[in-house]
Design a protein around this nucleic acid. Sequence first.
DNA 1: CAACTTAGTTTCATCATGCAACTACTGGAG
DNA 2: CTCCAGTAGTTGCATGATGAAACTAAGTTG
Lengths: 156, 156
Amino acid sequence: MVKRTSFESDACPIARSLDALGDWWSLLIIREALFGLRRFGEFQSKLGMAKNILSARLRALVDHGILATAPASDGSAYQEYVLTPKGRGTFPILVALRQWSEEFDDHPEEIATILVDREKGRPVKKLEMRAEDGRLLSPADTMVKPRPALRRRSVG
Amino acid sequence: MVKRTSFESDACPIARSLDALGDWWSLLIIREALFGLRRFGEFQSKLGMAKNILSARLRALVDHGILATAPASDGSAYQEYVLTPKGRGTFPILVALRQWSEEFDDHPEEIATILVDREKGRPVKKLEMRAEDGRLLSPADTMVKPRPALRRRSVG
DNA sequence: CAACTTAGTTTCATCATGCAACTACTGGAG
DNA sequence: CTCCAGTAGTTGCATGATGAAACTAAGTTG
């Protein structure tokens, strides 16, 4: 089959994330949702994407538990799409993408916005990886280990 | 045209990142490259993807300055694909994706690996967002600001 | 140089994407 | 109640992207 090779059953957590977030529009929809958008029409006009694709993506995000449909909010009888905790949990991913672009983009002058902390208005610090005890880690300081089979439970 | 709507000229840094990293395989190729893979055949057999797609993705990643082709390394006259600094800079993105999956996946028992710090063998701490002065920030503590037009330079 | 491996490219069927047009429902004016 | 405009989606169709397998070409081994 050609079906875009779902990574759903892959054991790698990165692949599993990509299965939910990895297509063209999903992360941008989530970005707008984090920014406060909720209605179909808002997403559609802000992102300028085709409505059928938006419809399919919203449904997929709802199926993945990233968005949920809420019945109303502004009185109208229409539907809204709001982020679940799982959806809000993608924030570090978006920040990482943003910071990567800010640091490495070939045309940084074309980037229109910066992420700042609301209180001081100063740029957010770069994400950093730390050990449990707080030591700063570089990629080389880390490794991937098989998961310790969390507590026997028909784990074969 | 249907050409998958390039985000290259979008002013949003997230969209710009996705333009380079946003397709199905790119981040997985980068993950394997961070893990040490370098050769076409290694990627192909490890990821199990079609060779034409791998070929196209590698070329795109090279064009984006994420990978570079190096002439050799193990003596053979073949080519290698090695990460550039820009490519290694994607590490936080991969960590963020991994941690999101670890925290929110519906079937966490299927995740086979964990990321640990090499020295202690303990899981890496969750990425956290901090202000310049070190305050821990939640999404709500941040906002997006227009970029301050970095220092006049034919900026219109 | 014959056999095998590595690194791709080509071919072809199928799926996904994107635009435009169409349908369904809501709410308000008359 | 009906007409009209706006919102929310679905359907149809052309085209491009994807994937499996076959094919090509160069490197390497014997």
